[in-house]
Design a binder for these strands. Structure first.
Lengths: 243, 243
DNA sequence: CGATCGCTTGAGCTATCTCAACCGGCGTGG
DNA sequence: CCACGCCGGTTGAGATAGCTCAAGCGATCG
């Protein structure tokens, strides 16, 4: 049941968990439709604006920024439940691109309704701010990882986080979860070269900590993974608001 | 004069610029007081909550995350006009610490009033979300810099950005602006060692691009600085909403 | 069957790190 | 008023994590 903050109707529950009934109901009111896209589709383009905002219902994707040099920085991975396009909604333009890695099913909102949401549903507006603050938090985490940790630590951390999110989403069965990205995507997220990322992955595999192949991730030794990732084994899952 | 988005009352003007009259007036309504702190004061502590939120009026500070290993990642620099504590206000706890580098004057808000703001001032609530989205944008930028750029590029980029913000705040006089941080702070922000950061700074100085000493930054060759920082020389300043 | 894609592995190179020493300025205490 | 310690900055030297280049492999697809 929801926890209430004294003055703020913050309802908390596990982050990235599948949506509840009431959540779905609410969304139905704002959604303008559903969309299914093929792998490789660009959902949002850096620098452009989008008349639509999305919530991922199924499938996975990537958020990234492109450089003039042709490099790219992956700034996050999109999993079911994630909101896409808040920046487009509230700022002039997206600051990063979003691309579908797998086939995705999306809940579509109309950007124009965002303002009415702020006017008529302050709790939901609050939630949006919450989402944005959470994004900010995760970006801060990523920055810290990329700025301070060694290659093996970065890779282990990423694996551990994927596993956490997979767990929260009920995607893990028998220690296995789908992870349909390329090593290049992970490398671009961690600020490492593809070659080095590969070597670190092989190392985790050789040490019996985790395997990732054919789009499936299997965590074999959670304790040593946490250790390598510099994460406490008893960390509690993040929470996110209903939206 | 304010630009209006069709459905959203977004008012735009240079980011980081000093506050306008109306802005100050509005803030007066919500502020519960002012605070002046000495250098070294911790304004927000990672993991804790704060009953107060701030807007920096004068002085500068640092946002950072600490590691178990004793390392830290500086995730941003606080300059006048910056909002401090949105995460504390909207999430359970701050995700990073904030420390005053110089003496600072702060505008103090009561966290409890945040919710009434969402209820009664949807435009301001919108602005808060805007601020959060902008933070997110800058963090994404930082992540890209730390993840993809070389040492000299990172340092040049940081200098260029300080200079941009200084310009917007009217702090630059005769190409000089105050920059009261230590090289260690910059190093921790860029994910470089102190020694290497120093060497890159010396290089920029030796090449007549920029000097930074005794707390003052002087940009001598803006064009070459932009080039080194991989920034377009004609970039336009960010905008931020009134709050 | 050839081409492409993602993954894997080896070898050599270098940007960056660590260690260590030194310097000047400043505040403090004798 | 001097001596000392501390802090921030500077510089050199050697070590290494991670990069680039390059080649090869299996799977998939047309």
């Amino acid at each position: 049941m929801p926890v209430q903050c004294r003055n703020c109707p913050i309802r908390k529950r596990p982050l990235f968990a599948p949506m509840s009934e009431s959540e779905v109901d609410f969304m139905e009111g704002f959604k303008t439709g559903e969309l299914e896209v093929d792998p490789g589709t660009t959902l949002m383009l850096e620098g452009s604006n989008s008349p639509q905002l999305y919530t991922a219902l199924e499938g996975m994707g990537i958020r990234y920024k492109s450089f003039a040099s042709g490099e790219r920085q992956v700034i996050g991975f999109v999993l079911p439940g994630d909101f896409i396009g808040l920046q487009a909604g509230v700022m002039d333009a997206m600051q990063h691109s979003v691309e579908a890695t797998t086939k995705m099913r999306l809940c579509v909102f109309d950007r124009k309704r965002l303002w009415s949401l702020f006017q008529d549903h302050p709790e939901r507006a609050y939630d949006l701010t919450w989402i944005s603050a959470v994004e900010e938090h995760f970006l801060g985490e990523s920055l810290s990882v990329v700025g301070q940790m060694s290659g093996i630590e970065r890779v282990a951390r990423a694996i551990a986080q994927f596993h956490d999110r997979g767990n929260a989403l009920g995607m893990v069965e028998g220690k296995r979860m789908p992870l349909p990205f390329r090593q290049q995507d992970l490398a671009d997220a961690l600020g490492l070269s593809l070659v080095h990322t590969n070597k670190m992955l092989r190392r985790l595999c050789a040490e019996g900590i985790a395997e990732w192949k054919n789009g499936w991730l299997k965590v074999l030794d959670s304790a040593r993974l946490c250790e390598t990732a510099q994460l406490p084994a008893d960390r509690e899952p993040m929470t996110r608001p209903l939206i």
